[in-house]
Amino acid sequence: MMNKKITFANLVDKIAEETGASKKLIHDLLTETVHLTREGLNRDGYVNLGGLGRFRLKWHKARYGRNPQTGEKIEIPGRNSVNFTAEANLREYINRQYSHLQSEIIEGKIEQVKAEPDDISIKPKDTPSPPVSKTPPPPARPEKKEEKKRFPRWPWLALPLIIIILAIIFWPSRKVTETEIKEQVISEKVEKDIQILPEETEQPETKPVIEEIKYEMPGGQHTVKPGEKLWTISLDFYNQGDLWPNIYRMNLNEIQNPDLLLIGNEISIPSLQGKPGNLTQKDIEDIAEGFIEVYLAYKESDNRKALYYLWVVKKWNINEIMDKYSDRIDETDLKLVDKIEGYPQIK
């Protein structure tokens, strides 16, 4: 905060010295401007003082408060306050020593949170190791354990060999007796590695299962009721409002402006192969097409929201759709969108 202050009389003296006018004139000038600003605030609610800034009346609404001593509820009446904003030139002049500085991005908490899933993926590999101790240990066991601690990577190199050996053991119905001897010797190594293996083998098994189950979100016909928007209709049918461009895509002839629905309009709603949060590739392509249609519609009416819809499709990185519409998308918009970081939360 400021330490020193200058009096009004001193200010008048200074201005009089600089301009060569009489002190009385300057005094009258300043008091008259103060008088005029009050008049202007009363009349219009704002006053522009060239070179200094703008005064404005701001209305604060009436609100309820409490008496801190008794706890009673009091109604605090609304009031006006006089606000002042300095002119841009003045602000620049005062901040000229900091003008070369710019805001910098700090690597914040968000990126640390993103790093966690990688750590989790390592944990399951460590957890299956304890069951190994249940297997009957041969006498030479403790020595081997120590070796593994020193060289934790070598079992991975031996993996393919062990798999081949296992295949030989289990496929031909136990004709070979020598393999059984080998089993006893290598039992430890093998069993440890077997327990790591199933994780890798399970994953490809589970993925196809998810694909086979098709949660079809049923589409159909819908007549628009009063108070409905595309967002609410999509919320009713898909349980997610974000997917409304998918509905808009199917009804380009019916709906001219995506923000405006006419009551009684008949809208056909496309069905989805997957559920929101677990959409299939085809669904995402359809929805991306809807997003681009919305972008084009907003672009025609110079709506600033248009860029958001282009950004979503760009981040999804679906090249087929981008190629299909490449003639109608502005290149300047694409460059703008490329600079924006982050990832859309719609999936």
Partner: peptide, 18 residues
């Protein structure tokens, strides 16, 4: 007169933390 007075207020007073 107004221009020079605003100049004094900004340059000689506010800029020097007065």
């Amino acid at each position: 007169l107004l221009k020079s007075s605003t100049k004094i207020i900004t340059r000689d007073i506010l800029d020097r933390d007065i």
